[in-house]
Design a protein around this nucleic acid. Structure first.
Length: 469
DNA sequence: GCGGATCAG
DNA sequence: ATGGCTGATCCGC
């Protein structure tokens, strides 16, 4: 929870200063213990790790639950901190399970299909890594609250959310996830960047100084990580909190502050033209399409290829039921045409009707998503029947409006209040009222076809996700 | 490939 | 009257 929100909720709250050096040192202590359980464990972050304890359990002739119990005990004794763990058939499930008995607990999900499917069936989509605030709401809008709900909507999900999301959701429904674990260092880095927030800045000279400073910061990181970048990306956040990025491909791979500045300056100047009177509150530089400066030895040690030409490991998408039936019907048409001729006609008619119904349903679902996208913040869930109606209210620390005094609903509301869309709406409204006064409002870079609908805020590419006809 | 958006930690 | 920073991935164009 954001500090300022917590402080409003609990004015007597005592806030300690961060001490990252301390956390890093402590994390190292923990890692020195877990390495004994899996020498190739994967650090997911400073306080998370994935272990494949298959081998450990085998050689020590011990059950996974026992091994983890022992690991947690050992960590507690040696480092004086408590940890939680999940034990499951793959990384996705283990991550979910690790949250089941927090703090200082563990949860084991049987490595058996039926148990896994049953577990997923009632699991809220939000519990899955990769489903955030936005996706959760969109899924909710079409009626998918739990991973079990996914199956009944399967025919619409690819069209509504794309093929990748569809594959992802099917894997959620089935409880599938990766079973590989490898040291983090063996993952190939894709970018190096730095950014910083500061008080509003509009002075072009100051902005150039800031760009120079940013370039110098990035050079440090490039040297530390031993990379050059083929692409250079400039990121800015305007005083309105709108974020923009611009990128260039310099004539050579870059990493020196000198070059980073030289090639990013034109992007900054162009943005100044695009948004006359531009005031920034954040600036960042990032290099992508990295080229390693490390000695070949080190690279080869981790088994990196010189220039990896993408290896398509993507599993092929399962063909839908309707597609299969279609194929079946086509096959049948090959042989038994005689007898089945009248049936075929009937069948085709029924199929056409079904297609039209599906189309109608799809549009309804799509509209449902759009509806919540726009004024989702205004939707107040109806009090459930049978429950006594709450008499008292809690004031939201952000919008100040009274909210139902239910912990869950209150937290959901705070979530909503902090959501980007809400923020953007507010920004837009204030920007409009400002422009009615005199202050020049940033002029937008060509916004395509926009005929006054949607309050002029940038054309959300997902807003109209389907085109019929 | 570019630029926007979402997500995680 | 918005949490900041780093990095990854996906989508539409």
């Amino acid at each position: 929870m954001a500090g300022f929100v917590a402080k409003k909720l609990c004015p007597e709250l005592i806030m300690l200063k961060l001490n990252f050096d301390k956390y890093i040192a402590k994390a190292q202590e923990v890692r020195e213990i877990i390495v004994d359980y899996d020498p190739r464990f994967e650090s997911a972050s400073i306080d998370e790790a994935y272990l494949n304890i298959t081998e450990y359990c085998r050689t020590n002739d011990i059950a996974p639950e026992e091994a983890v119990e022992q690991l947690r005990m050992e960590v507690h004794e040696k480092t004086k901190i408590t940890i939680s763990a999940g034990i499951a058939a793959n990384a996705k499930l283990a991550k979910i399970c690790s949250n089941m008995n927090k703090p200082n607990g563990q949860f084991s999900l049987p490595r058996e299909r039926n148990a896994i499917m049953a577990f997923m069936r009632d699991l809220p989509t939000r519990k899955v890594n990769g489903v955030g605030r936005v996706f959760e709401r969109e899924l909710d809008a079409v009626g998918v609250k739990t991973c079990g709900d996914i199956y009944q909507y399967r025919q619409y999900l690819a069209k509504l959310f794309g093929d990748k999301a569809f594959a992802f959701l099917m894997q959620c429904y089935l409880g599938l996830g990766r079973t590989t674990v490898q040291p983090a260092e063996e993952y190939e880095r894709k970018s190096v960047g730095t950014e910083s927030t500061f008080g509003e800045m509009g002075n072009p000279v100051e902005l150039r100084d800031k760009l120079r400073a940013t370039a110098e910061e990035l050079e440090k990181d490039m040297v530390r990580t031993q990379f050059k970048g083929r692409t250079l990306c400039l990121k800015v956040k305007l005083h309105t909190f709108e974020v923009f990025t611009r990128q260039v491909i310099p004539p050579k791979a870059v990493y020196l502050a000198e070059d980073l500045y030289k090639y990013s300056l034109p992007m900054l100047s162009k943005l100044e033209q695009e948004f006359p009177g531009m005031k920034l509150r954040l600036m960042g530089l990032r290099c992508t399409h990295l080229v390693s400066m490390k000695k070949p030895d080190t690279m080869a040690f981790f088994g990196f290829k010189r220039k990896s030409t993408s290896d398509q490991t993507e599993s092929e998408s399962p063909s839908s039921d309707t597609a299969k039936r279609k194929a079946d019907s086509l096959d049948n048409a090959g042989e038994g045409q005689w007898e089945s001729w009248p049936d075929e006609l009937l069948f085709e008619d029924a199929e056409r009707q079904e297609r039209e119904d599906e189309m109608q349903e799809l549009e309804t679902l799509s509209q449902e998503i759009d509806k919540r996208r726009h004024h989702g913040k205004e939707i107040v869930p109806n009090p459930k029947k049978g429950e006594e109606v709450e008499e008292d209210w809690w004031d939201c620390p952000i919008c100040g409006r009274p909210q139902a005094a239910s912990e869950r609903e209150f937290n959901e509301h705070i979530d909503l209040c902090l959501s980007r869309q809400t923020i953007r709406d507010v920004v837009q409204e204030t920007a409009e009222s400002r422009s009615r006064d005199q202050t020049p409002v940033p002029k937008r870079a060509k916004m395509g076809n926009e005929k006054g609908r949607e309050r002029g805020v940038g054309g959300d590419p997902k807003q109209r996700r389907l085109c019929f006809g």
